[in-house]
Structure formats: structure tokens, C-alpha cells
Design a protein around this nucleic acid. Structure first.
Lengths: 189, 189
DNA sequence: TTGCCAACCGGAGGCTACCTCCGTATTGTT
DNA sequence: AACAATACGGAGGTAGCCTCCGGTTGGCAA
């Protein structure tokens, strides 16, 4: 998960291998989807399969490490939009950003969903960060009267993910589907 | 795909094995998700692995056969709702039905999406059937003024699938998410 | 510097699943 | 009853998963 044990820093060779693995995993997941061969990742990283399993005991642990960074990027985008865009536009843009990000990852939307929904101990932290980001964008839209007051941050995340899945094979319809959703998020008139 | 070659009927033993395989596949997919072991399916059907591959050359072919039947059931439900429920309620109920159906299948939502989105030759027929059903429900809602006129049947299918994925791990929120979506489907006021 | 040991590495090995291929068995027709 | 045509089954080669443990390396203390 982290590059430190929480006690002593990792040995130099361990840290080097950890980072090579992370880099190759990122590339492989992008290229082959979430079920990319772990043995190939180890091979490409120039490392034994045993080393991979030592650093990342399960496939999920590896995916988790890869996406932790990218989650941070998504959260950062939310705060950025909150400062640079008008409320409703910010919300729309952020949902679209998540959706595009998810699609880039092909089968990894499954993993992203786990981050959003699963109560897994290890995912809680990421979850909180991204939900905090969602809340920032959402609250602004609600205060501006362009989003229903009963909408919760996790609803926004789910809808964004839903959008990405729904339009995965028909990207050209993403805008239209998003417009349906956004209409649904406005206060009832 | 079909139990006949289109020419001569299948031999008795072939047909028997075909149906056993289909039954076990249905059970296995339900139990283990879309990546259930094909060898186990053959084993449970009391049939050699070779026989499985002869009838269903790919995993997708098998999934396809299993879901063809269930697609028909979904379509039937749409026509039923069109006769027994008011327009908007019918649309809502049908989206919910699809969503529940998808969730039951765990990882098979992926396959369902393929049916809806993929232009695969073999899926076209199913696609047409289900889209026809979607159109029936949708048109009624549009004529009653409760659905946006620019909404297409495939949008409804995608949204339904999106709903099922989005609420897979939080079924208790399905209703709420659906209400957001339905608000979005109404004509702009 | 040298020596030591905890930390780390690597890959062989046992397992399961995938898919192909072809000798054998079954069906139904003449 | 005999013979094609059709279908069966599982051995076998490949690949991925994960574990286990003998060997190697890095960093610290003397």
C-alpha cells in the first residue's frame, strides 16, 4: 500500500522494485484491463513473480495502489473546478471528468466502483477523499439552486460511474446521457 | 445459437447434451458470475469439455445462448407493462425490472451491456427485440407527455443498465437514483 | 573495512483453466 | 444389419495463479 512499512523505511532494492512494479502495473492495466497477467507485469518490471506477491499480496492490492494516485488526481480536479467554474457547470464538468477517466480504464470501472461503494477497510480512506471532493462541487451547485437539496455526494459518484459504464461503447452519446442526468439533478420546478 | 442447424434437426444425443449444457451454464453463471469455469459446467452436465466447445465455440457464445431466453422475458415484461400500467409508471417499472434482473447476475451485467451496445452480428437480433420493447414503453410515456421527446429507446436501456451497475452494492438506494433519472427523462418545464 | 543478519529476491512447482485435436462411439437411414 | 454421417470425450500443450524456501543483498555496527 505505502512505500514504507510505517516503521523503518524500505530497503533500497525493495523500494526500487516496488516502484517498477507499480509503473508496469499501471501500464498493463491500461493495456489489458483489470485482469492483466500478474506474471507479465512482474516480467516487464524485471522482477520475479514472488517479489510481486510480496509487495502486493492480492491483485486487488496492486490495483488499489495504482488507483490511489489517480483518485487523488480526480479529487484535485474537483477542487480546481470549484474555483474556476460556475456551480452547475462545475458539477457537470466533474461528472464528465470521472466518466472519461473511468472509460480510459476499460474493465477497471469495476475497481473504481469498489472504491466508491465497497466498505472495504483499505478503500475507506480513498473513499473519504473522493467523497469530500464530490461534496465540494455538489454543495456549490446546491447553494446556487441548480441541484436538488436531497442529492448526496455518493449519489453524484454513482451517477458519474453509471454514466461511464452506460456510454462505454457509445462515447458519442455521453453528452446526451449526461444532459438527462443533469436535468434529473435539478430541483423539481 | 439455435438448437437446429437451420438445415437438418440435431441428432438426439446432440440435442440432449446441448440442453444439459445450457441448464448447467445458467446455474453456474448465476452462482459464479460470468467467468465460471467452463470445464466445471461440462463436468456438471456430465459431458466432455470437447462437447461443450463444439456446441459453444466461445464463452460468449454460451453466455449468449443463456441470455437469449432471459432477454425474451424482459421484452415480454415490457409489453405486459404497456397494457397494465399507466405510461410513466410503466417506464419506471420497466427500468427497475431490467435493473433488478441485471443485479441478480452479478458480473454478467457486462454481458448485458454487450447485448445493448455491441454491434456484434450475433447480438443484433436480441438487440432489436429488446429495443422494440423499450420503444413500446417509451413511446407511451412520451405520448402522455411524461418523457422527453428526444429520448431514444437505447437511451432507456443504457440508463437502466447504468442504474443497475451504480446501485449494485447499495440496492437500498436504487429507488432514489431511479427518481433522479426519471426526473431527468421528463420534458423540460 | 569487514562481517553479520535481517530483509529481500527469484523462480520452481503444484494447481486449475483454457482450448484443440483426433480416435472412438452413437445415431438413424437404406 | 450394415454403413456413413454425426457427435462424443478426454488427453495434452499452454498459460496464469499463488506458495514456499534456498540463495542473495543491503545497511549497520565494530
Amino acid at each position: 500500500m505505502s512505500t514504507t512499512t510505517g516503521q523503518r523505511p524500505m530497503r533500497a532494492d525493495a523500494r526500487r522494485n516496488y516502484e517498477r512494479l507499480l509503473a508496469e502495473a499501471k501500464a498493463s492495466f491500461l493495456e489489458h484491463g483489470a485482469d492483466a497477467s500478474l506474471e507479465e507485469i512482474a516480467r516487464r518490471a524485471g522482477v520475479g513473480i514472488g517479489t510481486l506477491y510480496r509487495h502486493f499480496p492480492t491483485r486487488l492490492a496492486l490495483q488499489e495502489a495504482v488507483y490511489r494516485v489517480e483518485m487523488d488526481e480526480l479529487a484535485a480536479k474537483a477542487y480546481e473546478l470549484a474555483e474556476t467554474a460556475p456551480p452547475e457547470e462545475g458539477l457537470t464538468a466533474w461528472i464528465l471528468t470521472i466518466s472519461q477517466y473511468s472509460r480510459k480504464k476499460r474493465g477497471l470501472t469495476q475497481t473504481l466502483k469498489a472504491v466508491i461503494d465497497l466498505q472495504s477497510e483499505t478503500f475507506v480512506r480513498c473513499h473519504e477523499d473522493i467523497e469530500q471532493a464530490a461534496e465540494t462541487v455538489l454543495t456549490r451547485a446546491q447553494e446556487a439552486g441548480t441541484a436538488r437539496p436531497d442529492l448526496r455526494p455518493c449519489d453524484v459518484l454513482r451517477l458519474a460511474h453509471a454514466l461511464s459504464v452506460a456510454s462505454e461503447r457509445a462515447p458519442e452519446d455521453t453528452e446526451l446521457l449526461l444532459s438527462f442526468m443533469m436535468d434529473g439533478l435539478r430541483p423539481r420546478s
